[in-house]
Amino acid sequence: MGTFTRGAALLGLVLFASCVAPIQLPSEFAAQRASGGEFLAATADEAVLRVRDVDDPTMGSNAQFWVAARRNDFVEQRGYVEVAKGEVADSAGVMGQWIEFTANVRGERVEYLAAMWSRQGGFLGLGSAYVQVVEFAARGAAYAARVEAVKAALMTVAK
């Protein structure tokens, strides 16, 4: 393969990756996977960021509902500790909710941030409802070093 072909292929790959990324990745994150409504990125020290669309099994609940449902499962069932929560506007100004937990996963402290937006799919929003979920998890210092950058990146999330 010639240099030009390789360069063009690489450029195409970069452009493709940047087109499909539903979030502007903070520095140090590298895209890992973008398929089937799921986008995954990670850092070298294994802080992981995932964006995915999941079907809304309700009749289009709002983001507060999903934060409450998630909190119920994480805190009441899994024993996570809620650390903080708040609101965030995505790149189109649509308000979503975020919530942070600290958890014990097999004896190890890990921290976790989830942000959610309730969306309507299809052309002109005539399709079925779904929830766009951004998750960020890491261990110890890897989390603390990036959580603010990830929170800032939530404002770049696109439908």
Binding site: V48, V54, R70, D73, Q77, A103, V105, E108, Y112, V133
Partner: peptide, 26 residues
């Protein structure tokens, strides 16, 4: 870190929530 949950976990009625969390991510 909080102590691990001892009692049996009741799974959420929303499948995607069961799949979410730091366990599956990390």
């Amino acid at each position: 870190p909080p102590p691990p949950q001892k009692r049996t976990r009741q799974r959420s009625r929303y499948a995607w929530i069961n799949e979410a969390g730091p366990e599956s991510l990390l």
